[in-house]
């Protein structure tokens, strides 16, 4: 396989791992104001439990985003340049979201003032919901093409991105992450919160299923993603795996096998990302104005030397990172103890 092709799929894989890991954090953050009881005292406890459910892991999860961004810069500098300047406002809104989410965990419990806590609670919700939505909007728009001219200059406004297909992508991402987060919360909590989380996952599932089907159908009309699949039908296996993951997560939830349900949901998210990535190939950032102006793995890549060095770096460090992150997950696999909350 050519270097550029290998890098194209590493690029896709890093985004998929980011969505799979930080996806549940963003999902829990989106669920944050809506789970459990309204009674204030209990609300405080429930929110603290939710933070502690993702607390040890979210920071490490978020680095997959930094790595996906860094690898885009390293392997496909032109894509990094054009993508991030074209999606300027959307990307900065994502960053603002992640900034306020990140500090909220640390700040929220540091003053005994309900108003203070409320501010950061709102930040946790906004800082989770907004990135989840905008990542979906951005990727759906990339799937259908972005109005860039031959110089890679964006011929649109931020509102260009909020077309029906883009919004559908945003809603799909939010639902995927909320579902994923609810399952993680079910794993990590006991008592009333556990029941609420299970209920949330079960109730969201049919909505997610409908959104996924509508998205797959709309993709047929709005994008060229299926061309690669029709040219090579064996690839439909990715779609099948994604659907199997989605169905599996429901079945496992019903059986109370929450870890298995979470893995099935993770498969769905990785599968959904690869559904788009494979459909895009070899485009990384297609132009909707003229296919000639699309940025591809071939016309936007780094030099062979850089691609080789980076391949060595990734081949050494990504397995090491995975190893210690998996260790972190096993250390914190048990339910959050209400008596031993850190935040």
């Amino acid at each position: 396989m050519e270097l550029q092709t290998i890098w194209f799929f590493i690029w896709g894989l890093l985004w998929a791992v980011f969505f799979m890991t930080d996806g549940f954090d963003l999902g829990i953050g989106t669920l944050y104001p809506f789970l459990g009881t309204d009674e204030t005292r209990k609300r405080v406890m429930i929110n603290a439990m939710m933070i502690n459910a993702m607390g040890p892991l979210w920071d490490g999860n978020q680095v997959w985003l930094i790595t996906a961004g860094g690898v885009t810069f390293a392997a496909f500098p032109l894509v990094y340049a054009v993508m991030f300047s074209s999606l300027y406002t959307a990307l900065l809104l994502i960053l603002f979201g992640l900034i306020i989410r990140g500090v909220s965990f640390e700040f929220r419990g540091k003053l005994d003032d309900p108003r203070w806590t409320k501010i950061w609670d709102a930040c946790i919700f906004l800082g989770s919901f907004l990135p989840a939505l905008l990542f979906g909007v951005a990727f759906a728009n990339i799937f259908q093409g972005i109005p860039i001219d031959e110089k890679g200059i964006f011929q649109g406004t931020v509102l260009t991105l909020f077309n029906p297909y883009g919004l559908l992508g945003g809603i799909l991402f939010v639902l995927l992450f909320v579902h994923h987060g609810a399952i993680w919360l079910a794993i990590k909590s006991g008592g009333g919160l556990h029941e609420s989380a299970v209920r949330a996952a079960t109730r969201i599932w049919p909505v997610l299923l409908v959104a996924a089907v509508v998205f797959l159908v709309h993709t047929w009309f709005a994008t060229n993603l299926y061309d690669n699949y029709l040219g090579n039908p064996i690839l439909f296996i990715v779609v099948l795996l994604t659907v199997a993951g989605l169905l599996g997560s429901r079945v496992f939830m019903a059986k109370g096998a929450h870890f298995k349900a979470w893995f099935a949901s993770a498969l769905t998210i990785v599968g959904a990302t690869f559904f788009g990535v494979i459909g895009l190939y070899p485009n990384l950032f297609p132009s909707s104005l003229d296919p000639k102006w699309s940025l591809t793995a071939y016309n936007a890549s780094s030099s062979p030397l850089t691609l080789k060095i980076m391949l060595a770096v990734v081949a050494v460090f990504v397995p090491v990172v995975l190893a210690y992150q998996i260790w972190a997950y096993t250390v914190f696999r048990t339910k959050v103890n209400e008596q031993e909350l850190t935040y």
Partner: peptide
């Protein structure tokens, strides 16, 4: 400059930032 500068930033994320943030 992405060919050079970008790869250094990517190495920072993979080889160092993960370590700090996970631990």
């Amino acid at each position: 400059v992405g060919d050079i500068f970008g790869s250094i930033l990517a190495i920072e994320a993979t080889a160092a930032f993960f370590l700090e943030s996970t631990f």
